[in-house]
Write a protein that binds this DNA or RNA. Structure first.
Length: 138
DNA sequence: GCCAACGTTGGC
DNA sequence: GCCAACGTTGGC
């Protein structure tokens, strides 16, 4: 199973709203970047990802699960982009960007090197390390 | 609030 | 098809 990282500004779409969306989840729209699109197209139902708050908070705050694979985003007038549906799985003890940058094993994470990408792949090793940092058992 | 990095746009 | 200019994002 592949792992991902979904990035959102808390002011636009926060973890609290993600949790409030419940088991039916929500669509992850608004992506207008081809690299991010590529990641979403590779997602499978049941894949899990970190939910990251950018800007003010800069921390991973929860885990989400893909519940619907890639489909067209009807709000995109160009018709080039699509979206997936995700639901909140569980909150995590926040792992901050500073903590991630302080961990040498995570030096190659996309979040560290290309922080502007809104949907990112996470390797299995990175997934386990961050779960451990959040005090979770992998 | 500033600035660096990246993506996109548009002129040629 | 190249590249400069511009806009946006996000860390600090």
């Amino acid at each position: 199973m592949a792992h991902w990282l979904f990035k959102s500004e808390p002011a636009t779409w926060s973890w609290t709203q993600m949790v409030a969306a419940g088991a039916k989840g929500t669509f992850w729209n608004g992506v207008r970047n081809h690299l991010a699109k590529k990641q979403m197209m590779a997602m499978q139902k049941g894949d899990r990802g970190f939910f990251y708050h950018s800007n003010e908070e800069r921390a991973i705050v929860g885990i989400v699960e893909v519940i619907k694979t890639y489909y067209p985003d009807h709000t995109d007038e160009s018709g080039k982009f699509g979206m997936v549906d995700v639901k909140a799985v569980k909150p995590l003890k926040a792992v901050s960007l500073a903590q991630i940058k302080n961990e040498p094993k995570l030096a190659d994470m996309v979040l560290v090197n290309n922080s502007r990408l809104s949907v990112q792949p996470v390797t299995d090793a990175e997934w386990r390390i961050i779960l451990a940092m959040a005090g979770e058992k992998a």
